[in-house]
Nucleic acid binder design. Structure first.
Lengths: 192, 192
DNA sequence: TCCTTTTCTTGATTTTGGTCAATGTTTTTT
DNA sequence: AAAAAACATTGACCAAAATCAAGAAAAGGA
Protein backbone atom coordinates (compact mmCIF):
# COMPACT_ATOMS: atom_id res chain seq x y z
CA UNK A 1 0.00 0.00 0.00
CA UNK A 2 2.88 2.42 0.61
CA UNK A 3 5.11 1.11 -2.19
CA UNK A 4 5.09 4.17 -4.40
CA UNK A 5 5.43 6.51 -1.44
CA UNK A 6 8.68 4.93 -0.32
CA UNK A 7 9.91 4.49 -3.84
CA UNK A 8 9.60 8.24 -4.45
CA UNK A 9 11.15 8.98 -1.06
CA UNK A 10 14.25 6.94 -1.84
CA UNK A 11 14.64 8.44 -5.27
CA UNK A 12 15.87 11.71 -3.84
CA UNK A 13 17.56 10.66 -0.60
CA UNK A 14 18.23 7.14 0.70
CA UNK A 15 16.39 6.23 3.89
CA UNK A 16 17.36 3.23 6.04
CA UNK A 17 14.88 0.44 6.82
CA UNK A 18 14.66 1.79 10.35
CA UNK A 19 13.89 5.30 9.22
CA UNK A 20 11.27 3.99 6.85
CA UNK A 21 9.60 2.01 9.60
CA UNK A 22 9.43 5.12 11.78
CA UNK A 23 7.90 7.10 8.96
CA UNK A 24 5.43 4.35 8.12
CA UNK A 25 4.14 4.50 11.68
CA UNK A 26 2.81 7.99 11.05
CA UNK A 27 1.04 7.27 7.79
CA UNK A 28 -2.53 6.27 7.10
CA UNK A 29 -4.27 5.46 3.84
CA UNK A 30 -7.61 6.22 2.34
CA UNK A 31 -9.61 5.17 -0.68
CA UNK A 32 -11.69 7.75 -2.52
CA UNK A 33 -14.25 6.97 -5.17
CA UNK A 34 -14.55 8.96 -8.36
CA UNK A 35 -16.35 12.28 -7.80
CA UNK A 36 -15.92 12.11 -4.05
CA UNK A 37 -14.26 14.94 -2.15
CA UNK A 38 -11.00 14.59 -0.32
CA UNK A 39 -11.37 18.18 0.83
CA UNK A 40 -14.10 20.79 0.62
CA UNK A 41 -13.67 24.54 0.62
CA UNK A 42 -14.28 25.84 4.12
CA UNK A 43 -13.08 22.72 5.91
CA UNK A 44 -9.61 22.70 7.43
CA UNK A 45 -7.15 20.65 5.40
CA UNK A 46 -5.76 18.25 7.96
CA UNK A 47 -3.41 16.26 5.75
CA UNK A 48 -1.03 16.10 2.86
CA UNK A 49 -2.17 13.40 0.43
CA UNK A 50 0.29 11.36 -1.59
CA UNK A 51 -1.40 9.66 -4.54
CA UNK A 52 -0.67 5.92 -4.67
CA UNK A 53 -3.25 5.24 -7.32
CA UNK A 54 -5.77 7.24 -9.31
CA UNK A 55 -6.16 10.89 -10.22
CA UNK A 56 -7.42 13.96 -8.38
CA UNK A 57 -7.95 17.64 -9.04
CA UNK A 58 -7.74 20.73 -6.85
CA UNK A 59 -9.97 23.63 -7.85
CA UNK A 60 -11.94 26.73 -6.94
CA UNK A 61 -15.49 27.57 -7.96
CA UNK A 62 -16.26 31.19 -8.87
CA UNK A 63 -19.49 33.16 -8.39
CA UNK A 64 -20.73 31.97 -11.76
CA UNK A 65 -20.27 28.37 -10.77
CA UNK A 66 -17.31 27.87 -13.09
CA UNK A 67 -14.56 25.55 -11.92
CA UNK A 68 -10.89 26.60 -12.09
CA UNK A 69 -8.41 23.78 -11.77
CA UNK A 70 -5.26 24.68 -9.90
CA UNK A 71 -3.65 21.28 -9.91
CA UNK A 72 -3.97 17.71 -11.06
CA UNK A 73 -2.37 14.88 -9.13
CA UNK A 74 -1.65 11.45 -10.58
CA UNK A 75 0.31 8.58 -9.02
CA UNK A 76 3.36 9.83 -7.16
CA UNK A 77 2.16 13.41 -6.74
CA UNK A 78 1.25 15.16 -3.51
CA UNK A 79 -1.94 17.16 -3.26
CA UNK A 80 -3.25 19.39 -0.48
CA UNK A 81 -4.49 22.85 0.33
CA UNK A 82 -1.07 23.69 1.65
CA UNK A 83 -2.00 27.05 3.13
CA UNK A 84 -4.83 25.53 5.11
CA UNK A 85 -2.59 22.62 6.12
CA UNK A 86 0.16 24.93 7.38
CA UNK A 87 -2.02 27.49 9.16
CA UNK A 88 -5.13 25.59 10.19
CA UNK A 89 -7.29 28.19 8.41
CA UNK A 90 -10.30 26.98 6.39
CA UNK A 91 -9.42 25.69 2.95
CA UNK A 92 -10.03 27.84 -0.11
CA UNK A 93 -9.74 24.94 -2.52
CA UNK A 94 -11.66 21.75 -3.18
CA UNK A 95 -9.98 18.43 -3.86
CA UNK A 96 -11.93 15.74 -5.68
CA UNK A 97 -11.13 12.34 -7.19
CA UNK A 98 -11.33 12.15 -10.99
CA UNK A 99 -10.84 8.38 -10.85
CA UNK A 100 -11.21 5.89 -7.99
CA UNK A 101 -8.07 6.62 -6.01
CA UNK A 102 -5.88 5.60 -3.09
CA UNK A 103 -3.92 8.14 -1.11
CA UNK A 104 -1.40 8.10 1.73
CA UNK A 105 -2.20 10.73 4.36
CA UNK A 106 0.18 12.69 6.60
CA UNK A 107 -1.18 15.01 9.27
CA UNK A 108 0.60 18.14 10.42
CA UNK A 109 1.59 16.66 13.77
CA UNK A 110 2.76 13.47 12.04
CA UNK A 111 4.94 15.56 9.74
CA UNK A 112 6.42 17.45 12.69
CA UNK A 113 7.18 14.22 14.53
CA UNK A 114 8.85 12.78 11.45
CA UNK A 115 10.95 15.93 11.06
CA UNK A 116 12.16 15.44 14.63
CA UNK A 117 12.86 11.74 14.45
CA UNK A 118 14.11 11.56 10.88
CA UNK A 119 15.77 14.90 10.08
CA UNK A 120 16.57 13.77 6.54
CA UNK A 121 12.85 13.88 5.91
CA UNK A 122 12.89 17.63 6.27
CA UNK A 123 15.52 17.84 3.53
CA UNK A 124 13.33 15.64 1.38
CA UNK A 125 10.41 17.88 2.14
CA UNK A 126 12.37 20.98 1.19
CA UNK A 127 13.40 19.44 -2.13
CA UNK A 128 9.84 18.35 -2.76
CA UNK A 129 8.39 21.81 -2.26
CA UNK A 130 11.22 23.39 -4.25
CA UNK A 131 10.29 21.19 -7.20
CA UNK A 132 6.66 22.17 -6.83
CA UNK A 133 7.65 25.84 -6.75
CA UNK A 134 9.67 25.52 -9.94
CA UNK A 135 6.80 23.79 -11.72
CA UNK A 136 4.42 26.53 -10.61
CA UNK A 137 6.84 29.18 -11.80
CA UNK A 138 6.99 27.62 -15.24
CA UNK A 139 3.24 27.56 -15.34
CA UNK A 140 3.06 31.26 -14.54
CA UNK A 141 5.57 31.90 -17.27
CA UNK A 142 3.48 29.95 -19.77
CA UNK A 143 0.38 31.88 -18.70
CA UNK A 144 1.91 35.32 -19.16
CA UNK A 145 4.12 34.72 -22.18
CA UNK A 146 2.69 32.06 -24.50
CA UNK A 147 -0.13 32.17 -27.04
CA UNK A 148 -3.06 29.87 -26.30
CA UNK A 149 -1.87 27.37 -28.88
CA UNK A 150 1.64 27.34 -27.44
CA UNK A 151 0.21 27.00 -23.95
CA UNK A 152 -1.78 23.95 -24.96
CA UNK A 153 1.23 22.37 -26.67
CA UNK A 154 3.43 23.13 -23.69
CA UNK A 155 0.97 21.40 -21.41
CA UNK A 156 0.52 18.31 -23.57
CA UNK A 157 4.27 17.89 -24.02
CA UNK A 158 4.84 18.24 -20.29
CA UNK A 159 1.97 16.02 -19.13
CA UNK A 160 1.01 13.56 -21.89
CA UNK A 161 -0.41 11.15 -19.31
CA UNK A 162 -2.81 13.73 -17.96
CA UNK A 163 -4.05 14.43 -21.48
CA UNK A 164 -4.82 10.73 -21.87
CA UNK A 165 -6.62 10.30 -18.60
CA UNK A 166 -8.44 13.55 -17.96
CA UNK A 167 -11.46 14.99 -19.83
CA UNK A 168 -10.62 17.82 -22.17
CA UNK A 169 -12.80 20.38 -20.48
CA UNK A 170 -10.77 19.97 -17.30
CA UNK A 171 -7.59 20.62 -19.22
CA UNK A 172 -9.25 23.74 -20.60
CA UNK A 173 -10.04 24.81 -17.05
CA UNK A 174 -6.44 24.18 -15.97
CA UNK A 175 -5.16 26.30 -18.85
CA UNK A 176 -7.60 29.12 -18.16
CA UNK A 177 -9.52 28.54 -21.43
CA UNK A 178 -13.04 27.53 -22.41
CA UNK A 179 -13.67 23.96 -23.64
CA UNK A 180 -14.67 25.35 -27.04
CA UNK A 181 -11.36 27.10 -27.45
CA UNK A 182 -9.40 23.95 -26.63
CA UNK A 183 -11.51 22.01 -29.09
CA UNK A 184 -10.68 24.56 -31.79
CA UNK A 185 -6.99 24.58 -30.98
CA UNK A 186 -6.94 20.80 -31.34
CA UNK A 187 -8.74 20.98 -34.65
CA UNK A 188 -6.27 23.54 -35.94
CA UNK A 189 -3.30 21.47 -34.78
CA UNK A 190 -4.72 18.32 -36.33
CA UNK A 191 -4.96 20.12 -39.68
CA UNK A 192 -1.17 20.55 -39.72
CA UNK B 1 24.80 45.75 5.64
CA UNK B 2 23.12 42.49 6.70
CA UNK B 3 20.56 44.05 9.01
CA UNK B 4 17.46 43.21 7.05
CA UNK B 5 18.70 39.73 6.22
CA UNK B 6 19.03 38.78 9.88
CA UNK B 7 15.88 40.59 10.85
CA UNK B 8 13.89 38.47 8.39
CA UNK B 9 15.71 35.34 9.50
CA UNK B 10 14.76 35.86 13.14
CA UNK B 11 11.16 36.63 12.31
CA UNK B 12 10.44 33.00 11.54
CA UNK B 13 12.86 31.14 13.79
CA UNK B 14 15.17 32.55 16.48
CA UNK B 15 18.89 32.13 15.78
CA UNK B 16 21.56 32.57 18.48
CA UNK B 17 24.37 35.12 18.11
CA UNK B 18 26.73 32.25 17.44
CA UNK B 19 24.60 30.79 14.71
CA UNK B 20 24.24 34.20 13.11
CA UNK B 21 28.00 34.70 13.14
CA UNK B 22 28.50 31.37 11.39
CA UNK B 23 25.94 32.27 8.77
CA UNK B 24 27.39 35.73 8.27
CA UNK B 25 30.73 34.15 7.42
CA UNK B 26 29.22 32.65 4.28
CA UNK B 27 27.57 35.78 2.98
CA UNK B 28 28.82 38.43 0.59
CA UNK B 29 27.21 41.61 -0.63
CA UNK B 30 26.97 43.39 -3.93
CA UNK B 31 25.73 46.73 -5.20
CA UNK B 32 23.93 46.89 -8.50
CA UNK B 33 23.10 50.07 -10.36
CA UNK B 34 19.75 50.66 -12.00
CA UNK B 35 19.47 48.85 -15.35
CA UNK B 36 22.43 46.59 -14.58
CA UNK B 37 22.11 42.81 -14.70
CA UNK B 38 22.49 40.59 -11.68
CA UNK B 39 22.01 37.59 -13.98
CA UNK B 40 21.78 37.09 -17.72
CA UNK B 41 19.99 34.28 -19.52
CA UNK B 42 22.52 31.63 -20.50
CA UNK B 43 24.85 32.24 -17.56
CA UNK B 44 24.74 29.90 -14.59
CA UNK B 45 23.02 31.41 -11.57
CA UNK B 46 25.62 31.00 -8.84
CA UNK B 47 23.76 32.64 -5.97
CA UNK B 48 20.55 33.40 -4.20
CA UNK B 49 20.20 37.14 -3.77
CA UNK B 50 18.47 38.67 -0.75
CA UNK B 51 17.47 42.28 -1.40
CA UNK B 52 18.70 44.63 1.35
CA UNK B 53 17.85 47.74 -0.60
CA UNK B 54 16.34 48.61 -3.95
CA UNK B 55 14.18 46.74 -6.46
CA UNK B 56 14.84 44.10 -9.09
CA UNK B 57 12.90 42.16 -11.69
CA UNK B 58 13.27 38.66 -13.11
CA UNK B 59 12.06 38.19 -16.68
CA UNK B 60 12.23 36.37 -20.01
CA UNK B 61 12.41 37.93 -23.44
CA UNK B 62 10.42 36.27 -26.23
CA UNK B 63 11.20 36.02 -29.97
CA UNK B 64 9.47 39.33 -30.56
CA UNK B 65 11.61 41.06 -28.01
CA UNK B 66 8.78 41.45 -25.52
CA UNK B 67 9.68 41.19 -21.87
CA UNK B 68 7.68 38.96 -19.50
CA UNK B 69 8.21 39.66 -15.82
CA UNK B 70 8.11 36.60 -13.62
CA UNK B 71 8.95 38.27 -10.35
CA UNK B 72 9.67 41.55 -8.66
CA UNK B 73 11.85 41.73 -5.57
CA UNK B 74 11.89 44.61 -3.12
CA UNK B 75 13.63 44.87 0.24
CA UNK B 76 13.42 41.60 2.18
CA UNK B 77 12.68 39.40 -0.84
CA UNK B 78 14.90 36.72 -2.32
CA UNK B 79 15.48 36.59 -6.05
CA UNK B 80 17.29 34.00 -8.16
CA UNK B 81 16.93 31.65 -11.10
CA UNK B 82 16.30 28.82 -8.69
CA UNK B 83 16.42 26.04 -11.27
CA UNK B 84 19.80 27.18 -12.52
CA UNK B 85 20.98 27.64 -8.95
CA UNK B 86 19.94 24.12 -7.94
CA UNK B 87 21.15 22.26 -11.02
CA UNK B 88 24.01 24.34 -12.40
CA UNK B 89 22.27 24.49 -15.78
CA UNK B 90 22.33 27.81 -17.71
CA UNK B 91 19.72 30.30 -16.53
CA UNK B 92 16.56 30.84 -18.54
CA UNK B 93 15.73 34.12 -16.81
CA UNK B 94 17.32 37.55 -16.59
CA UNK B 95 17.56 39.52 -13.36
CA UNK B 96 18.00 43.26 -13.55
CA UNK B 97 17.91 46.14 -11.08
CA UNK B 98 15.00 48.54 -11.45
CA UNK B 99 16.55 50.87 -8.86
CA UNK B 100 20.09 51.11 -7.49
CA UNK B 101 20.18 48.10 -5.19
CA UNK B 102 22.15 46.21 -2.60
CA UNK B 103 21.91 42.45 -2.30
CA UNK B 104 23.24 39.76 0.02
CA UNK B 105 24.55 36.76 -1.92
CA UNK B 106 24.60 33.09 -0.93
CA UNK B 107 26.30 30.52 -3.15
CA UNK B 108 25.18 26.90 -3.40
CA UNK B 109 28.16 25.59 -1.46
CA UNK B 110 27.68 28.28 1.18
CA UNK B 111 24.07 27.21 1.55
CA UNK B 112 25.07 23.57 1.93
CA UNK B 113 27.65 24.43 4.56
CA UNK B 114 25.14 26.49 6.49
CA UNK B 115 22.63 23.61 6.36
CA UNK B 116 25.28 21.38 7.92
CA UNK B 117 26.47 23.74 10.61
CA UNK B 118 23.14 25.40 11.42
CA UNK B 119 20.39 22.82 10.80
CA UNK B 120 17.69 25.29 11.79
CA UNK B 121 18.60 27.20 8.67
CA UNK B 122 17.25 24.36 6.55
CA UNK B 123 13.91 24.65 8.36
CA UNK B 124 13.96 28.36 7.66
CA UNK B 125 14.76 27.65 4.07
CA UNK B 126 11.89 25.18 3.80
CA UNK B 127 9.43 27.71 5.23
CA UNK B 128 10.79 30.36 2.92
CA UNK B 129 10.27 28.29 -0.22
CA UNK B 130 6.87 27.12 1.00
CA UNK B 131 5.79 30.75 1.27
CA UNK B 132 7.08 31.42 -2.24
CA UNK B 133 5.16 28.38 -3.52
CA UNK B 134 1.92 29.57 -1.95
CA UNK B 135 2.33 33.04 -3.44
CA UNK B 136 2.98 31.53 -6.86
CA UNK B 137 -0.09 29.32 -6.52
CA UNK B 138 -2.25 32.32 -5.77
CA UNK B 139 -0.86 34.06 -8.80
CA UNK B 140 -1.74 31.09 -11.01
CA UNK B 141 -5.21 31.13 -9.56
CA UNK B 142 -5.58 34.83 -10.34
CA UNK B 143 -4.35 34.22 -13.90
CA UNK B 144 -6.82 31.45 -14.65
CA UNK B 145 -9.86 32.64 -12.75
CA UNK B 146 -10.05 36.44 -12.56
CA UNK B 147 -11.08 39.05 -15.12
CA UNK B 148 -8.34 41.48 -16.12
CA UNK B 149 -9.80 44.17 -13.95
CA UNK B 150 -9.98 41.86 -10.93
CA UNK B 151 -6.45 40.71 -11.63
CA UNK B 152 -5.18 44.26 -11.59
CA UNK B 153 -7.04 45.03 -8.38
CA UNK B 154 -5.80 41.86 -6.76
CA UNK B 155 -2.24 42.80 -7.60
CA UNK B 156 -2.50 46.37 -6.36
CA UNK B 157 -4.12 45.33 -3.10
CA UNK B 158 -1.46 42.68 -2.52
CA UNK B 159 1.55 44.79 -3.49
CA UNK B 160 0.73 48.50 -3.09
CA UNK B 161 4.43 49.31 -2.65
CA UNK B 162 5.34 47.77 -5.98
CA UNK B 163 2.65 49.83 -7.68
CA UNK B 164 4.21 52.97 -6.21
CA UNK B 165 7.78 52.19 -7.17
CA UNK B 166 7.60 50.33 -10.46
CA UNK B 167 6.61 51.71 -13.90
CA UNK B 168 3.16 50.72 -15.02
CA UNK B 169 4.26 48.91 -18.13
CA UNK B 170 6.25 46.50 -16.00
CA UNK B 171 3.19 45.77 -13.93
CA UNK B 172 1.35 45.12 -17.20
CA UNK B 173 4.08 42.67 -18.17
CA UNK B 174 3.85 40.93 -14.79
CA UNK B 175 0.10 40.57 -15.20
CA UNK B 176 0.38 39.27 -18.77
CA UNK B 177 -1.31 42.37 -20.24
CA UNK B 178 -0.32 45.16 -22.61
CA UNK B 179 0.48 48.61 -21.15
CA UNK B 180 -2.48 50.05 -23.06
CA UNK B 181 -4.87 47.65 -21.41
CA UNK B 182 -3.59 48.52 -17.93
CA UNK B 183 -3.92 52.19 -18.71
CA UNK B 184 -7.54 51.65 -19.75
CA UNK B 185 -8.32 49.56 -16.68
CA UNK B 186 -6.98 52.36 -14.49
CA UNK B 187 -9.05 54.93 -16.32
CA UNK B 188 -12.17 52.85 -15.85
CA UNK B 189 -11.48 52.31 -12.17
CA UNK B 190 -10.80 56.02 -11.63
CA UNK B 191 -14.20 56.84 -13.12
CA UNK B 192 -15.88 54.94 -10.27
C1' DT C 1 18.49 73.70 -16.65
C1' DC C 2 17.88 71.63 -21.03
C1' DC C 3 17.76 67.67 -23.68
C1' DT C 4 16.85 62.92 -24.20
C1' DT C 5 14.69 58.94 -23.02
C1' DT C 6 11.15 56.65 -20.92
C1' DT C 7 6.55 56.30 -19.73
C1' DC C 8 1.60 56.94 -20.11
C1' DT C 9 -2.60 57.96 -22.51
C1' DT C 10 -5.97 58.01 -26.19
C1' DG C 11 -8.17 56.79 -30.56
C1' DA C 12 -8.99 53.77 -34.58
C1' DT C 13 -8.79 49.19 -36.18
C1' DT C 14 -8.14 44.27 -36.15
C1' DT C 15 -7.78 39.98 -34.02
C1' DT C 16 -8.79 36.79 -30.66
C1' DG C 17 -11.32 34.22 -27.82
C1' DG C 18 -15.71 33.96 -25.22
C1' DT C 19 -20.75 33.19 -25.31
C1' DC C 20 -24.79 30.97 -26.84
C1' DA C 21 -27.02 27.28 -28.98
C1' DA C 22 -27.56 23.01 -31.31
C1' DT C 23 -26.02 18.34 -32.34
C1' DG C 24 -23.65 14.17 -32.03
C1' DT C 25 -20.85 11.09 -29.38
C1' DT C 26 -19.19 8.65 -25.54
C1' DT C 27 -19.39 7.12 -20.91
C1' DT C 28 -21.74 5.99 -16.80
C1' DT C 29 -25.49 4.36 -14.26
C1' DT C 30 -29.45 1.65 -13.41
C1' DA D 1 -29.59 -3.06 -22.66
C1' DA D 2 -31.66 1.24 -22.12
C1' DA D 3 -31.67 5.65 -20.24
C1' DA D 4 -29.29 9.40 -18.51
C1' DA D 5 -25.44 12.13 -17.89
C1' DA D 6 -21.23 13.92 -19.30
C1' DC D 7 -18.37 15.29 -22.96
C1' DA D 8 -16.82 17.14 -27.49
C1' DT D 9 -17.55 19.57 -31.68
C1' DT D 10 -19.21 23.18 -34.69
C1' DG D 11 -21.27 27.56 -36.26
C1' DA D 12 -22.86 32.32 -35.67
C1' DC D 13 -22.27 36.25 -33.17
C1' DC D 14 -20.32 39.48 -29.88
C1' DA D 15 -17.18 41.44 -26.55
C1' DA D 16 -12.75 42.05 -25.03
C1' DA D 17 -8.14 42.91 -25.62
C1' DA D 18 -4.16 43.39 -28.85
C1' DT D 19 -2.06 46.14 -32.28
C1' DC D 20 -0.81 50.31 -34.52
C1' DA D 21 0.01 55.06 -34.31
C1' DA D 22 0.41 59.60 -32.46
C1' DG D 23 1.09 62.79 -29.00
C1' DA D 24 1.62 64.38 -24.15
C1' DA D 25 3.77 64.01 -19.76
C1' DA D 26 7.29 62.69 -16.61
C1' DA D 27 11.79 61.26 -15.24
C1' DG D 28 16.69 60.71 -15.82
C1' DG D 29 21.13 62.20 -17.35
C1' DA D 30 24.45 65.62 -18.92
Amino acid sequence: MYELFFQKLNEKILFSEEEQTIIKGYLTTKKIRRKQYLLQEGDVCKTLAFVEKGALKEYTVDEKGAEHILQFALEGWIISDLYSFMTGEPATYNIEAIEDSEVVLITKSAQEEIFKKVPKYESYSRMQITGAYLAMQKRVNSLISLSLEERYLYFTSLYPTIVQRVPQHMIASYLGLTPETVSRIRKKLAAK
